[in-house]
Simulated assay, not measured.
Amino acid sequence: MSTRRSIFITGGGSGIGRAVAIYFAERGWFVGIADINQQGMEDTLGLIEGGFKYSHRLDVRDRAAWDVALEAFSTAAGGRIDAVFNNAGIGHGGPIAEQPTGEIEALLDINLKGVIYGAQAAYPHLKKTAPGSALINTASLAGIIGAANLSVYCATKWAVRGFTRSLDAEWAPDGIKVAALCPGFIDTPIIAQTRPDSNQSVKESLVEAGVEVNPVSIVPKVVWDAVHGDKLDYTVGKTASRLLMLSRFLPGRVRKEMRRQGIGTQG
């Protein structure tokens, strides 16, 4: 088995996944990225110096494809996987009464089932490199609060946090760490999308409303800390940190604020 530590990252073709891949590669890790966007993955690999990098086209909704992808990456990385970053996700919103069935199914399949399938497939690899191996699941600020017009998205992210807590208990005897990443609004392609009810992008609407939008560059250090730390939730940005604290100690205040603002979140 190789002595170089390795991490497998889904959603590695852009945004948070790309930034985390570059960060870990710069610190000597063998980095594997997965995405359905082949060009995006090639662009990410082009930003990583050195030869310790790997890409694999993966649809996280395909359980069998997960096994193939992780086996291939383990072979490329010298027989080991030390961390899996379950990061792939999508964001859709709107009033629940009007949300198309296709959008609902896609959110559940990618944001939740994809995370569950990733954990199942990752388990034997992470057990092999335990203690010290880690599974990091991307949740969101939307997994901390309930935001208007993002009910299904919030449901998937709350579920990811619950799933993470269950695995923390289930995998502790194996020495595998499990944590949830909870970003607030991050400047990624998701919030660059144009809102369906406006000519503005999601980002433009947030900035106009005075909502904090953080650069993607602040995320990788938090993922690094999650891989090496021992907490369950790792927030990114002041807003996420503040609302996590308030949700624990002043839940009524958070409820009133969400009702007042009626704004969505993404992670």
Results as ranks from 00 to 15, higher is better:
P220S: 01
P215G: 09
V213C: 02
M245Q: 08
L250P: 00
P215F: 07
I218A: 05
V223E: 01
P215K: 06
I218P: 05
R255Q: 12
D230P: 02
T235E: 13
V213R: 01
R255M: 03
P215C: 04
N214L: 04
L244M: 12
R248D: 05
S241I: 00
S247H: 11
I218S: 03
K238S: 14
L243V: 03
E212H: 10
A240N: 08
G252T: 04
R248T: 10
R253L: 15
T235A: 07
V219D: 06
T239M: 11
D230L: 02
A240I: 03
V222S: 07
V236K: 10
P251C: 07
V216K: 05
L246W: 12
S247W: 03
A240S: 15
V254Q: 04
K238C: 01
Y234L: 08
G237Y: 09
V219K: 06
W224R: 05
N214C: 08
A240R: 07
M245D: 07
D230W: 02
V236R: 13
Y234K: 08
V213W: 00
K231Q: 15
S217W: 00
Y234S: 10
K238R: 14
S217P: 00
L243S: 01
V254T: 07
R242N: 06
G229K: 07
V222H: 09
L232E: 12
K231F: 04
E212C: 00
L244T: 13
A240H: 08
L246Y: 09
E212W: 01
T239D: 12
V213H: 02
D233E: 15
L250K: 15
D233G: 01
P251G: 06
S241M: 08
T235I: 07
M245V: 07
G252W: 05
V219Q: 05
